[in-house]
Design a protein around this nucleic acid. Structure first.
Lengths: 140, 140
DNA sequence: ATAGATGCAAAGAGTTTGCATAGGT
DNA sequence: ACCTATGCAAACTCTTTGCATCTAT
């Protein structure tokens, strides 16, 4: 089973660490992400979470996404030329697929280990990589 | 040697195709991109091209980048979580490296062909891929 | 001469921030 | 009770667009 509540703490403005409060808005956002079958944009999260807590504002979504990333409960999925998406963290290393028709993003399984052997020029050190495949999804 | 002038044509507003005029501003932008050792952002292009043609405006840079992409003279380098960069087109398939310290983007050579063998779930078709490596560049 | 190009400023889209108030602990 | 979280609106950043004017052809 999953933890009912993200672990915190996060870094507060004064440099002080604290655990974010468990508000209805934050729960709505967490449930939305957990229920999502694919990485979601802030706007998709807002729309969907609104049905769980009406009156939810976009600023609250952004603020919670930030703290949930900081807590390590979600991670940001960055794609070329696209707004970031968010998904539950803690999965094993994987990459993503974006449908060029519907623009939705899907999770792929695993990672060809050939990638981690790609090297950069002398003096450059590689820390991580991002791979995105593009094409048509099953629906399009 | 390189063509002194991009080939055109591009698609005009009326659906009519035409070749963009060879203005001093456009030449300054092209020379800047050609002289750049790495993919540049619109702002980097503006700053650098200003020294070749003062008074150049950012809107002109955006408009010319768009038509140069359409002509196939440059291509857009899209990176996760980053503003697009632009580089001369026509190079062979390659990927990019971004330094996590200075944020600059560098071109890598070639592509591990293992990547093109990565497959997506049933019903999905892969058309292309983007790979970005992250780490430290030689200067940082 | 004519139609596309430019510079400026205003308009948009997406994200962040300030502030008064609500509410979790 | 205290102090963080929220919602709203304003601020910001990046990019696009409208318009009067300029200019490559």
């Amino acid at each position: 089973m999953k933890a009912k509540r993200p672990p915190g703490p996060v870094q507060g403005p004064g440099g002080r660490a604290f655990t974010p409060r468990d508000t209805p808005q934050r729960r709505a956002i967490r449930k939305t992400i957990e229920a999502g079958a694919r990485p979601l944009t802030p706007n998709e999260i807002l729309d969907s979470a609104k049905s769980r807590h009406r009156g939810l504002g976009i600023a609250t979504v952004y603020r919670n996404l930030k703290s949930l990333v900081e807590e390590g409960w979600i991670s940001e999925v960055a794609l070329p030329n696209e707004a970031p998406r968010y998904e539950r963290a803690g999965k094993h290393h994987h990459h993503h697929f974006q449908c060029s028709a519907c623009r939705r993003v899907f999770e792929l399984e695993g990672c060809a280990d050939a990638i981690s052997r790609i090297s950069a020029p002398d003096g450059f050190s590689v820390e991580r990589h991002e791979l995105t495949l593009f094409g048509r999804c099953a629906d399009c």
